[in-house]
Simulated assay, not measured.
Amino acid sequence: MSKLNLSKLVAATLLLSSSLAYSAELTGAGSSFIFPVLSKWAEAYKAKTGNSLNYQSIGSGGGIKQIKAKTVDFGASDAPLKFEELQAAGMVQFPAIIGGVVPIVNIDGIKPGQLKLSGDLLSDIFQGIVTNWDDKRVALLNPGIKIPAGNITVVTRSDGSGTTAIFTDYLSKASGPSGWKEAVGSGASVKWPAASTVSGKGNEGVAANVARIKNSIGYVEFAYAKKNSLSYTQMKNMAGQFVLPEEASFAAASAGTDWSKVPGMGTFITNAPGAKAWPITGATFVIIYKQPENKASAAEVLKFFDFAFTNGKKAASELDYVPMPDATVDYIRNSVWSQVQTK
């Protein structure tokens, strides 16, 4: 073989080796809230680029721990980090998707979307003040619906959870004076007061427990309710209207949010005004370093989410998530991603 052909062969081999090495998986961890749509995005991205995503649906608290430990390329949390914490750690975050947290129940004869609840009543159920489904306050909100008696089992998250942060932020706002905020508080982990409380890991664990336990109530991202054919409730919103969880009501809740005006883009959008707004709406935030150790992987993370923003809207809508508005995506590209050094 001539030296020229040998050189070409070596160059081709090196190029192939480089390509194969770079097609290694991206890694992420955290929110189970985003996992259903993230899986769809990852599937489509791999089909187009050959690059895959290994995402651990371990809860927002776990995702924050892993990105801080630099064991993954990005973390995902439904409880946004405070701007000061981002600054101190040298990180940025951006909302990737909007969705709804929904109460789910396992009550004989109650169909999806049939049972009506309010913030006050939901708070008192999760505090263990209302303990049976035949309570007069439940009946008052649901005239004409036969709700069988049964001791209520409350199902919550056992792990540090952004879904819990959204849910408890809502209860703190909607339960009135001397309600949830004073008695329990909000956050990714709280001390659940109801004596009947059973916990599960991730949205998956909560959904599984509610499906298994008669007369139980829990809370999950809406895609998990639909996927597991669980009965979800209507909720009375800030405008006093009962609304169903769906893409339109999640979009109505988030319509007034100007993410660009919030330092670090981190805000809750629970108990939003508007007659059509679902009151327990939230977003998942992706967290990455401004100066990542692996710049190539960081660049690929941005490419992945750019692909998701551009090509993943249909997949998001099919799962009743709300894609980020175009104006917000433009802000993310120009003002957030520009801070990440990928070269």
Rank of each mutant, 00 (worst) to 15 (best):
S216F: 01
V198E: 09
S186P: 10
I213F: 01
S249P: 07
A248D: 08
N228P: 02
N203D: 15
G200K: 04
E247I: 05
A239R: 10
V262M: 13
G202E: 15
K191C: 06
P245D: 13
S196Y: 02
G202T: 07
L230P: 00
G264R: 05
V262Y: 15
G205C: 03
V198K: 06
E246S: 14
P263A: 03
A239F: 11
K227T: 09
E204L: 04
N237F: 15
T197N: 14
A194S: 12
S189N: 13
A207V: 00
M235V: 10
E246Y: 06
S231K: 01
F250E: 08
S229M: 03
T197F: 06
L244P: 10
S199R: 08
S216M: 02
K236E: 12
Q234D: 07
E204N: 15
A251F: 03
K201S: 09
A225Q: 03
E246L: 13
A239T: 06
A211I: 01
A252S: 08
Y219P: 07
W192K: 05
A225R: 04
V220E: 05
Y232A: 07
N209V: 01
E204S: 15
E246H: 10
V198W: 02
F242I: 11
K201V: 14
I213K: 00
G200W: 05
S186T: 07
S196P: 02
N215D: 04
G187R: 07
V210S: 00
A223G: 07
I213Q: 00
K227A: 07
V190R: 06
N215M: 03
R212Q: 08
V198L: 05
G185I: 05
N209T: 00
A239V: 06
V220P: 06
G187T: 07
V220R: 04
S229V: 04
K227L: 11
S186Y: 12
V184K: 11
A252D: 04
S216I: 01
V198Y: 03
K191A: 11
Y224N: 08
A225N: 05
K191G: 12
V190Q: 07
V206I: 01
K191E: 13
K201D: 12
V210D: 00
Q241L: 13
F242E: 11
G185Y: 03
Y232K: 08
S196T: 10
G205D: 02
N203Q: 04
Q234W: 10
E221Y: 09
V220W: 11
S199D: 11
G202D: 10
S196M: 03
P193R: 10
S199C: 09
E246A: 12
V198P: 02
